[in-house]
C-alpha cells in the first residue's frame, strides 16, 4: 500500500540531478535559514521578546509593514490600470512602455535609491518643486513610500496582463447585450476575473516591499521611530554585534510576512472559489 517515494523511471540522471538539487538547496538556503531558527531557539523566547519589545523596534516594524501595505495597495490599483492600457489600448510607444515596466527588476536597488533621493531631495528636481508648495518627500515616510512603490511596480502588471489577454470578449458583449453599462461591466464582470491574479501581484509586491533595503535607506533619512525601517535595524544590530537582537527582528519579520501571505492566500482561494471559472 502507499505510493512509492519515487516512481521508477527509464530516464537516467536521477542521482546526479537529485544530488545537485538537494545539496545546493541545503547549503545555500536551508542551512542558513536553519541557522536563523536555531539561533532564535537557543536564545529562547524571553530573550527574543526582550529585543523586539522596545519602542524603537516596534516603531520600525510598524513603519515597514504600514508603508509596504500602502505601496502594495497603490501598485494594485496602478498595476491593473497599466496592464489594462497595455493590453486593450493602442498608443504610441506602447511596446517600449511594456518593456520598461520591468525596469525596477533590472535596476539595482542602490542605483534606484540614490537616483530617487537625488530627484526627491529638497534640492532635487521634484523635491524643489514640492518644497515651494511646503512639502517634503525625501527623508519622510512619503519618500519611503515612493521607493517601495518603485520596487514593487511591475508585480501586479505582470500577473494581471496575461489574464486580461485571455478574457473572452464575448463575456463583455453578453454583459452589454443584457443592458449593462460599460462601467457596470468593468465593475461586475471584468474586475472579479482579475481579482485572483491581482491579489497574487499584491502579495508579491508587499513581500518585496517589506524586505526592501537598498532603495529605501538613501531616501529614508533613517531617523529612529520616524523613518527607520526594520531591515535597517537588523543591519544596525549586526554592526553592534548584537546577533540575538538581529535574529529577533529577522524572525519577527519572517513571522509577520508569512502570516500576511497566508491571509492573502486565504482571500485568494475564497475569491477564486466565488468566481469559479478563473
Amino acid at each position: 500500500m502507499g505510493r512509492p517515494l519515487i516512481h521508477r523511471s527509464p530516464i537516467p540522471g536521477l542521482g546526479v540531478s537529485a544530488g545537485i538539487t538537494l545539496t545546493m538547496l541545503t547549503l545555500v538556503v536551508l542551512l542558513p535559514i536553519g541557522a536563523l531558527l536555531l539561533k532564535g531557539a537557543t536564545a529562547g523566547f524571553p530573550a527574543l521578546w526582550h529585543e523586539v519589545n522596545t519602542r524603537r523596534v516596534w516603531g520600525a516594524l510598524f513603519l515597514s509593514f504600514r508603508l509596504s501595505f500602502y505601496a502594495a495597495l497603490f501598485n494594485l490599483v496602478f498595476g491593473v490600470a497599466l496592464a489594462w492600457i497595455l493590453v486593450r489600448y493602442r498608443f504610441w510607444g506602447r511596446r517600449l512602455i511594456d518593456a520598461a515596466v520591468d525596469l525596477p527588476f533590472a535596476l539595482p536597488t542602490a542605483v534606484a535609491g540614490i537616483a530617487l533621493t537625488a530627484l526627491y531631495a529638497p534640492n532635487g528636481a521634484f523635491g524643489a518643486l514640492v518644497k515651494d508648495l511646503g512639502f517634503k518627500i525625501a527623508y519622510t515616510p512619503l519618500g519611503i513610500f515612493i521607493a517601495l512603490v518603485f520596487v514593487g511596480l511591475p508585480f501586479v502588471t505582470r500577473t494581471v496582463q496575461p489574464v486580461i489577454e485571455e478574457i473572452d470578449r464575448e463575456v463583455e458583449e453578453a454583459s452589454a447585450t443584457l443592458g449593462a453599462s460599460r462601467a457596470h461591466t468593468i465593475r461586475h464582470v471584468i474586475l472579479p476575473m482579475l481579482a485572483p491574479a491581482a491579489l497574487t501581484g499584491f502579495a508579491l509586491s508587499l513581500a518585496r516591499a517589506v524586505g526592501e533595503y537598498g532603495s529605501v535607506i538613501f531616501i529614508a533619512g533613517n531617523l529612529p521611530m520616524k523613518t527607520e525601517i526594520a531591515p535597517l535595524l537588523i543591519v544596525i544590530k549586526l554592526e553592534e554585534f548584537n546577533y540575538v537582537g538581529a535574529t529577533a527582528i529577522g524572525l519577527a519579520m519572517l513571522v509577520i510576512s508569512f502570516a500576511m501571505l497566508f491571509v492573502i492566500n486565504v482571500v485568494q482561494v475564497w475569491s477564486r472559489r466565488r468566481i469559479g471559472y478563473v
Binding site: P32, L38, K39, L204, A207, Y213, P231, Y243, G250
Partner: peptide, 16 residues
C-alpha cells in the same frame, strides 16, 4: 528566497 528579505538572507549567512 523570494519571500525572504535580502538583509535577513545576509543575516542567515552570517549566523551560519
Amino acid at each position: 528566497p523570494f519571500s525572504v528579505s535580502p538583509v535577513v538572507a545576509g543575516l542567515c549567512i552570517v549566523l551560519t
